[in-house]
């Protein structure tokens, strides 16, 4: 996307967030088949098709400015959305370097980075930020390096320290989480923070995914898609703010589901970081209303079938159960039962 017309929109209160036809077309619809169950759906994070969400290391889209503004609102209400344990300072600089180098390389008309030895100057056009600092000296930045760049890249970020045969979530910048808490999870090991996920233990998926991530190598980042649903286009669906968004689940009807119910897809990318040997886990959230989704009929049909046949444990875990009937009723109008070819493409 070369000429982004940034939209002024909200992810709370009046919820003016909408997707343009372009944004709908590039939406990362995650279902290639009519049935869904967890799998280790990891692939290499190599540059994808031009204009797609995986064209670049980090995707910047038409929601960039509004999403960064929403991050600041959430952070202002709750400082605990950013946390970094003291031993993660090298990983913080790794994150700053990776994000600045990627954005300035992939979107040179929006972001520039100039280096004069350790003296770096960063310019962020869309947000109107310009700072010079000494790489490695946190006192020369207005914020800690991880928080500084976490505010300027869409998505959430976790830095994982690798030790004792597992991974520890020892730093995070989390303002658009699908109902999990950084304050609760920070410092936890892999198996501790995945404890609540149903149906995976017996499949051994978490063990396999952990082994795979522990051998993740620099220069070979990987990605996967995950999904859930959210009522209203809200990024901050945190347990801390449940009273602000939880009750909306009860207001979904077969009539308003098309507008209220959103498919929430996370593009999760994982990078091995150089100085710290930590892993960056980035979670980039894409929201689309059922109405927007249904502009491509095969997506509406397929999503109807996936939701209809989803395992009850997953309906419960993803918090869909309470409005499941209403959403199915809305989607069923768009499903004529025709057989769909494999693949998640829109047309």
């Amino acid at each position: 996307m070369n000429n982004l017309a940034y939209k002024h929109e909200t992810f709370r209160d009046d919820y003016t967030y909408r997707n343009s036809p372009d944004a709908i077309r590039r939406f990362p619809f995650p279902f290639a088949e009519d049935h869904y169950m967890y799998s280790v759906n990891i692939e290499q994070h190599q540059p994808g098709a031009k204009g797609s969400i995986v064209e670049h290391a980090f995707d910047i889209d038409e929601h960039y400015v509004s999403e960064c503004e929403d991050k600041l609102i959430t952070l202002g209400q709750d400082k605990g959305r950013y946390a970094a344990l003291p031993h993660m300072m090298d990983a913080q600089w790794d994150f700053l370097e990776l994000s600045m180098e990627s954005l300035s390389r992939d979107y040179p008309h929006l972001f520039t980075l100039t280096k004069d030895g350790e003296r770096w100057t960063w310019r962020n056009g869309p947000l109107g930020i310009e700072d010079s600092f000494v790489f490695g000296d946190a006192a020369t930045l207005p914020l800690e390096p991880f928080e500084y760049m976490g505010r300027q890249v869409q998505g959430d970020f976790v830095l994982l320290d690798q030790r004792e045969g597992t991974l520890f979530a020892d730093a995070g910048f989390i303002t658009s989480q699908a109902d999990w808490s950084l304050a609760f999870d920070v410092g936890m090991s892999w198996h501790e923070w995945h404890g609540p996920v149903p149906q995976v233990e017996k499949m051994g998926i978490m063990d396999r995914a952990l082994k795979f991530l522990m051998s993740l190598q620099q220069g070979n980042p990987v990605r996967r898609l995950n999904w859930t649903m959210t009522i209203n286009p809200r990024l901050d669906t945190s347990p801390e703010h449940f009273p602000e968004w939880g009750p909306d689940k009860l207001k979904v009807t077969a009539q308003n589901a098309g507008e209220k119910a959103h498919l929430r897809v996370e593009l999760q990318t994982m990078f091995r970081l150089p100085r710290s040997n930590a892993i960056l886990f980035s979670i980039r959230c894409y929201l689309i209303s059922l109405e927007e989704l249904a502009t491509y009929p095969r997506w509406a049909k397929r999503f109807h079938r996936v939701l209809r046949d989803l395992h009850p444990d997953l309906l419960e875990y993803k918090g869909i159960k309470v409005y499941h009937e209403a959403v199915l009723a809305w989607l069923s109008q768009h499903d004529d039962g025709a057989e769909l070819a494999l693949g998640a493409h829109p047309e």
């Binding site: 799998s39 280790v40 990891i42 692939e43 290499q44 995914a209 082994k211 795979f212």
Partner: peptide
């Protein structure tokens, strides 16, 4: 193929 690392299956 996907992961080329013996994890995804």
């Amino acid at each position: 193929y996907l992961c080329r690392g013996g994890a995804c299956g």
